[in-house]
């Protein structure tokens, strides 16, 4: 209830901004963003209504999805958000970092770059973490690491399957070495979780890089990739400047990663929920009826 009200309010504010902008530049004809959308991949302009689940109706490009949109997509219905926090550490006293976090909290209504939750997919109860790159590009600092670790420990205690949707620019540089330690903390929790023979599905969405791609993202029992998503350890620019030659066009796409052996399957967004449902069902034992 509160959420749908919030959604409406967000839309309203987008519309207001748009109107104000239009008033300022009367001469330039702008595309009203809430009615039409331009695909960043094929550049076609289509009605927003024709974009089902943020997928371009023309070329099938998967535009980023925020955490709440993702949870609405996969869960059977209601779900419960877990481990929200007011913590916002700044261990290096990095100038302006605290203010930046406050601003993003206001703007995105998120407490950090991941939302942890519990609910049902295909009637099977599971714990799901969804990273949201509107918040500091989904980078992993102490809060992200702590929330995901708590979610893994919770899933272990309740003996539930775990799904993590990743999107991340990497470790949160502003928190220095403490961000690096999150990689160890989360993978420690995963080691325990796996030792209990519980299922972990890692779901790679655009873009997933750096510390996340060298900690929990590649460690799924099953690793799913979303079409068009970029997934790698070092960024394209860093690599290009090291080797000083042109990179292959499809470099670091999920397709490239699947061909290289690091992703089990690529699943279109329209099949996301049903694929997860099947995988969860197959890890429940023998099907009855």
């Amino acid at each position: 209830m509160e959420k749908s009200f919030k959604k409406q309010k967000d839309k309203l504010s987008i519309f207001k901004n748009l109107r104000q902008r239009n008033r300022k530049n009367k001469n330039t004809r702008e595309i009203p963003e809430d009615l039409f959308k331009k695909c960043p991949h094929c550049n076609e302009i289509q009605t927003s209504a024709s974009y089902k689940d943020n997928v371009c109706p023309n070329c099938g490009f998967h535009l980023p999805m925020n955490a709440y949109e993702r949870m609405d997509l996969i869960y059977d219905g209601r779900y419960k958000v877990l481990f929200t926090t007011k913590e916002a550490p700044n261990p290096l006293d990095f100038p302006g970092y605290g203010e930046k976090i406050d601003e993003l909290k206001q703007k995105t209504k998120l407490d950090e770059a991941v939302v942890c939750s519990i609910g049902h997919i295909g009637k099977i109860k599971c714990v799901v973490c969804v990273m949201d790159n509107r918040f500091m590009m989904g980078s992993m600092g102490s809060v992200v690491g702590e929330k995901i670790t708590k979610a893994i420990e919770f899933a272990l205690k309740k003996k539930l399957p775990l799904i993590i949707f990743t999107t991340s620019g990497g470790a949160r540089m502003q928190e220095g070495i403490f961000s690096l330690m999150q990689m160890a903390k989360v993978n420690g929790a995963l080691a325990r979780f796996k030792a209990a023979n519980l299922l972990y599905v890692s779901y790679i969405t655009h873009p997933t890089y750096g510390g996340v791609s060298a900690s929990f993202a590649p460690m799924g029992d099953i690793v799913i990739g979303e079409p068009f998503a970029m997934y790698g350890f070092a960024g394209r620019r860093v690599i290009a400047s090291t080797i000083k030659q042109k990179l292959p066009d499809d470099f670091q796409t999920t397709k490239y990663n699947m061909d290289a052996g690091f992703i089990d399957l690529i699943v279109e967004r329209s099949k996301c929920k049903q694929t997860l449902g099947k995988i969860l069902a197959m890890h429940q034992g023998v099907r009855h009826g």
């Binding site: 080691a191 060298a214 929990f216 993202a217 790698g232 350890f233 690599i239 090291t242 080797i243 290289a260």
Partner: peptide, 23 residues
């Protein structure tokens, strides 16, 4: 950081070293 590193899964290789260290 190189093409071959990525293609052979440098992230996965490091992640596995980290995770396994807890076992």
């Amino acid at each position: 950081p190189g093409v071959e590193s990525e293609q052979k899964g440098i992230g996965e290789a490091i992640a596995k070293c980290i995770e396994d260290s807890f076992n």
